[in-house]
Nucleic acid binder design. Structure first.
Length: 271
DNA sequence: AGGTTGACCTGTCAGC
DNA sequence: TGCTGACAGGTCAACC
């Protein structure tokens, strides 16, 4: 999915429903990417005192510990205040609280629900420890971004996806931000001039903020907690538009593969 | 140490 | 209609 905007939109809708409620039941379905790491029963009785996002992880602060949810490629979360019926074949994790049910539905099972005793525990550190700065927080300055890119010889698209310089920029928004900044996805990160780095820094924030406002993208099966699809898809400038005319210059959009992932760009507008 | 590749798992869609 | 292969939002571990 689930890039930063989708996770952020999910967090925003989950938060008011879950905050302050107490877990009364936990159901674990088929194995996800990682095991929960604790007997589900130990979560019962704990109150959800915080709902946060870090990169593409949803974090639920409990009285004693932290629950991390990742949506992988195909995950989505639903919450409802009435019993949503029996678990479906792809509902692999469910939290029942004193006022609602929350389910993680994930056909491909690349997602995960993991318990960590604290944010500083090894369990949490393994997943969160290497993450770069949040693109929409104050730490993401263009100076920081330029310093991060200066150390990286690899293609800028793959550095963005790596998540150790800046988190949350996934395959769709990496293509979109690079188009907005006029930078070719294959360009070595350290070979981008400062003026263009500033443009990319701005483009990443613009693309993400816009996507959040539109409710996240919805290329396939992403759904919000209320079951509605996002609207970003209709706003895509390059992603998924191979062969179609560039919105700036009319040249056909190209598709290449980098690191086994599809990249879309305009060979005229992006250098 | 940074860069690259494979693996995880299953649904959908295009093409024959 | 049915089968096969390509492809899909992510990210870690294991290599060079």
């Amino acid at each position: 999915m689930p890039e930063l905007p989708e996770v952020e939109v999910t967090k925003q809708s989950l938060s008011p429903m879950l905050l302050g409620t107490t877990i009364s039941g936990v159901h674990v379905g088929k194995p996800l990417r990682w095991p929960l790491g604790v007997d589900p029963k130990t979560l019962v009785g704990q109150t959800i005192v915080g709902v946060r996002r870090r990169g593409k992880y949803l974090l639920f602060d409990l009285d004693a510990g932290l629950l991390l949810l990742h949506l992988g490629m195909s995950g989505s979360v639903s919450v409802s205040q009435q019993w949503p019926g029996p678990l479906g074949p792809y509902d692999h994790f469910e939290l029942q609280t004193t006022s609602c049910w929350m389910r993680l539905n994930d056909p491909r099972r690349f997602g995960a629900a993991v318990f960590a005793p604290s944010e500083n525990s090894p369990q949490a550190h393994k997943l969160l420890g290497h993450l770069g700065v949040e693109p929409l927080e104050a730490g993401f300055t263009s100076d920081y971004f330029a310093a991060g890119l200066a150390k990286r010889a690899g293609a800028i698209k793959q550095v963005l996806l790596g998540g150790d310089v800046v988190v949350g920029v996934g395959n769709i928004y990496a293509s979109e931000a690079l188009f907005m900044a006029g930078i070719r996805p294959t360009r070595g990160a350290k070979r981008i001039g400062r003026v263009r780095i500033n443009k990319l820094h701005q483009a990443i924030q613009t693309v993400l903020v816009r996507a959040i406002a539109l409710g996240g993208s919805s290329l396939r099966d992403f759904k919000h907690t209320n079951g509605e699809h996002g609207l970003f898809q209709a706003n895509s400038q390059v992603y998924g538009r191979e062969g179609q005319a560039c919105t700036q210059c009319q040249a056909p959009i190209k598709r290449i593969v980098q690191g086994q992932r599809a990249t879309y760009f305009c060979a005229t507008c992006q250098r």
